[in-house]
């Protein structure tokens, strides 16, 4: 049975990484969930492109970070922070699609 990521993660957030990039952090509740997600590659570039409905080439970086039991995904910002058409200057409210990830 599929389970929702909130059973495994305690922090899911988005934020600008400078004005031209947007970065997502998923911090897992413990080492076990972190290792499970990492070894099974539940979070990967193709899957994240699907979750965010963006081209895989717009995913700049996907890094597993053991000290924080976390995975970080950085994407190209659709426009630079504050450019015409902006909806979220700080990029802090772009995480919602990640809340629907299942494993």
């Amino acid at each position: 049975m599929k389970r929702n990521i909130l059973e495994a993660a305690k922090v899911i957030r988005s934020k600008n990484a400078g004005p031209y990039e947007l970065t997502f952090d998923i911090m897992f509740k413990n080492k076990e969930f972190y290792e499970m997600f990492k070894s099974q590659q539940i979070i990967n570039r193709k899957q994240m492109a699907g979750v965010l409905k963006i081209d895989e080439s717009d995913i700049l970086n996907l890094v597993w970070f053991a000290p924080a039991n976390a995975v970080k995904i950085t994407i190209k910002r659709p426009i630079s922070s504050g450019a015409p058409g902006e909806t979220d200057i700080y990029g802090a409210q772009q995480h919602a699609p990640l809340l629907g990830i299942e494993f």
């Binding site: 922090v11 400078g18 970065t23 911090m27 700049l60 890094v63 924080a68 976390a70 970080k72 950085t74």
Partner: peptide
């Protein structure tokens, strides 16, 4: 965890 988590904050590569 809080210290390590902060290392992730606002960067593209921790």
């Amino acid at each position: 965890e809080s210290a390590a988590a902060h290392t992730l904050y606002e960067k593209s590569d921790p």
